[in-house]
Design a protein around this nucleic acid. Structure first.
Lengths: 205, 205
DNA sequence: TCCTAATTGGAACGATCGTTCAAAAAATAA
DNA sequence: TTATTTTTTGAACGATCGTTCCAATTAGGA
């Protein structure tokens, strides 16, 4: 079981990796997502990723480096799926509503209560790790900009009032997402989350 | 330097503790608050509390037990100060505004970016520690109820519209607090926080 | 003063931490 | 086949983890 896709950039390769890099990174991401940076040991990662310590260090570097690659992977997959509909040309006020709706659905169906990997990392690492902090800040900023884009389009279409401060609204929506992520870790009740979202989005009326 | 206050409940006491229990608990709280549960070692606690390992275990039990006492201490001090004005008889819409104002001030002046101890703990421990989870849930619920009380009084005084859902609003305000706490760990800009709060509290207009 | 009881400080415990490394295994090139 | 190169595996490293334990210290009671 060799992944020949790796062959492309190599002049000479005596042996190919037996695992798919993307697949095991996904598993690392899920582990960090659920247990946090400090709460995850190398042994946990070895067990969950299904590769040995040697392969892990050889492929992804040390724990910190692997963590940052896991964050980047989260951004490329989960966050991307969140942002795409907001940035679509056809996006409107409804795209924002859908965004919060899907948040509720994911929160309620998430039995592990992992919350959002970015939110978790902000809380755990940002105050002590400026490098990770700026990485996360960038990712969150992209979400905020996506909200802003959607708001502009909604305004152009006359779906929201013309006198609203769209920058402030985008920051508000981003902050609200974080809040919901925290709340859903405590008491994940669909009705309560829906109530909060309803009040949140009433600012667009 | 003996703290004779401890004498009261003891029939016979050969030697008194050389430290004030409340004072060193405060120091433990600040350490856990800043570095989290996993991010704080017993050695960190010994260094910051200024007592030896023996005294620490004898007085507060193990790490987990000390952590829970630290949470309880946070609730008795910081959270209490947040809630009191909301529960006061004279409380009104302004009490809610003041609450968010003081949050901004504390966030901006918090050089360590500790955020809120409860929020941090929700994110780090709630999914894996149901006992701590329910302790935190109770504390957060008290904040929500305080908002609810203030909202009722504001409604009675005609400061907010009569058709608003006060339960939903209270949940929303609590969620917003959590969101602001997370955001202020990433990028603690007074103007941005003020913008978010302005939009947040516009739901009371 | 001596006895007793509680506190204190820090050595020591086994377990686990993140990381390194060298030998075994695998696959290509010659 | 042999030589070469890379990957894989897991043992082993020193450091640190949370916790226990005990001798030294302190102070009230007899």
């Amino acid at each position: 079981m060799c992944y020949l896709s790796y062959r492309i950039n190599l002049v000479k390769m005596a042996r190919y990796k037996e695992f798919n890099q993307e697949e095991v990174l996904e598993k690392a991401m899920k582990t960090f997502w659920r247990y946090g940076y400090e709460g995850t040991s190398i042994q946990n990662l070895v067990d969950n990723m299904g590769i040995s310590r040697g392969s892990l260090y050889d492929t992804f570097g040390d724990k910190r480096s692997l963590f940052q690659k896991a964050i980047a992977h989260y951004d490329r997959t989960v966050i991307r799926q969140l942002i795409l509909p907001l940035e679509a040309e056809a996006a409107s006020k409804n795209a924002i509503f859908d965004c919060f709706d899907s948040l509720i659905n994911r929160a309620v169906s998430d039995r592990d209560r992992k919350g959002c990997f970015l939110t978790n990392t902000v809380v755990e690492l940002c105050p002590h790790d400026s490098e990770t902090a700026s990485q996360i800040a960038q990712n969150i900023k992209r979400v905020e900009k996506a909200f802003h884009k959607a708001l502009i389009k909604a305004k152009d279409r006359g779906e929201i009032k013309a006198d609203l401060d769209l920058e402030a609204l985008a920051s508000f929506l981003t902050s609200s997402l974080q809040g919901l992520r925290v709340i859903s870790k405590i008491h994940c009740d669909r009705q309560m989350l829906a109530d909060i979202v309803k009040v949140t989005l009433s600012v667009l009326d």
